[in-house]
Design a protein around this nucleic acid. Structure first.
Ligand code: SF4
Ligand code: SF4
Lengths: 153, 153
DNA sequence: TGATTTCGGACTAAAATTGTCCTGTTGCTC
DNA sequence: GAGCAACAGGACAATTTTAGTCCGAAATCA
C-alpha cells in the first residue's frame, strides 16, 4: 500500500523543475544529482511524463526538460497516474477489474470511497502548492539544501 | 498502491463471521470454501487477527473462530492494520521512517494527508456497516451467494 | 486414544519494484 | 558533415514483496 518510488521520484523531479521557475530547462543529469535520484531511473520516469504531456523534452546539446504548463496547473494526481497508472486500492478498482464478486461486494464500495479520497487529495494539490509549502518549512533541512549549498561555492 | 490480498481476505473472512450472527463459530475450512479464499493462506491471516484480539480461536474438535466483539465495534481499519501493519503511503509515513528528507519535504506532508483520509474511511466503517450495505446490493450477485445456494439444498 | 482443529514457522513461486545498460535518434555547433 | 550532447526505447537483472504451501506440534473433545 505504497506509492512507488517511481511515482515519488516523478513528483520530486517535476517539483525541482517548478522550483527553478517558469519554463526553465533542466538536464536529467542535474535533477538526478540534486534530488538524489538514480539517473537512469529518473530518465525512464520522465519518458512517461513526456508522453503524458506534462513536460517537454529537448534533445541534443543544450537540451533538457521543461514543464509544458505553469506549476499551478499541474496536479500531483496527474503526475503520479501518468507514471503508475490509475491509483487503485483493489483489483475491483482497476481499469479492467479482476474480480467476479464486484456486483455483490460491500467491501468494493468501501475501497472505492477510500480511493476517491486519495485522488481528491492528490488532485487538489499542484506543483505550485508544493513549492509554496516548501517555503514554510525549516530552511536548514529543506530538500533543496544541496542546491543552496552548491550555490554558495 | 493496493491493499494486499491478505488484508482483503481478512476483512472478507471476518465479514463472513459477522454475517453468521453474534458469537457463532466458524471453521477456517468453511470460511475459506464459502468465500473462495485459499485455506492455508486464510489460516495464516486469522492468526494475526487472533493476536490482535479481533477474533478468538478455539482449538480441537468442535473448535473454530468467533468474533470477540460485536460487528459494530470492529472497524475495517483495525482489521487491515492488524494484518498488514499500519497503512503508509510512503516510507516517510512508516513507523520507523526511511528517508532523510522528512523535515524539509513538502511532499511528505501531502502523503500524510492522503493517508489520513484513507484511514478515516476505514476507521469509520465497521463490519456491521458492511453487512448492512450488503443487504442493499442485488441479491442475485451477492458475495454470499454460495451460502444461500448451499442452504437451499 | 484418536480425531479434529488451530499454531507457528520454514519454505517456495510468482510478481512487482527498482533499477542498469546499450543502441538508437535527434539536434546543436563547428 | 563530423562530432558531441542529450533524450528515447527496450532488454535485462537484482531485490523485495506478495501470495501462498507445508508440516510438525499443541490443544481440545469424545
Ligand atoms: S473488495 Fe470485493 S469486489 Fe473488490 S476485489 Fe475484493 S472481493 Fe472483489
Ligand atoms: S515524500 Fe519526501 S520525506 Fe517522504 S519519502 Fe519522499 S522524499 Fe522522503
Amino acid at each position: 500500500m505504497q506509492i512507488t518510488r517511481a511515482g515519488e521520484y516523478g513528483v520530486l523531479g517535476l517539483l525541482h523543475l517548478a522550483r527553478r521557475g517558469a519554463a526553465r530547462m533542466a538536464l536529467i543529469d542535474d535533477i538526478s544529482r540534486e534530488e538524489e535520484i538514480p539517473k537512469s531511473f529518473l530518465a525512464k520516469i520522465f519518458q512517461s511524463l513526456v508522453k503524458a504531456g506534462v513536460v517537454r523534452s529537448y534533445r541534443g546539446a543544450g537540451g533538457g526538460f521543461a514543464l509544458t504548463r505553469k506549476p499551478s496547473e499541474i496536479t500531483v494526481l496527474e503526475i503520479i497516474e501518468a507514471i503508475e497508472g490509475k491509483i487503485a486500492l483493489q483489483r475491483c478498482q482497476l481499469d479492467v477489474p479482476d474480480c467476479e464478486h464486484m456486483e455483490g461486494c460491500a467491501l468494493c464500495g468501501l475501497f472505492e470511497r477510500a480511493q476517491d479520497r486519495v485522488r481528491d487529495v492528490f488532485s487538489g494539490t499542484t506543483l505550485a502548492d508544493l513549492v509554496a509549502t516548501e517555503a514554510t518549512l525549516p530552511a536548514k533541512t529543506r530538500h533543496t539544501r544541496k542546491l543552496e549549498l552548491a550555490a554558495l561555492k
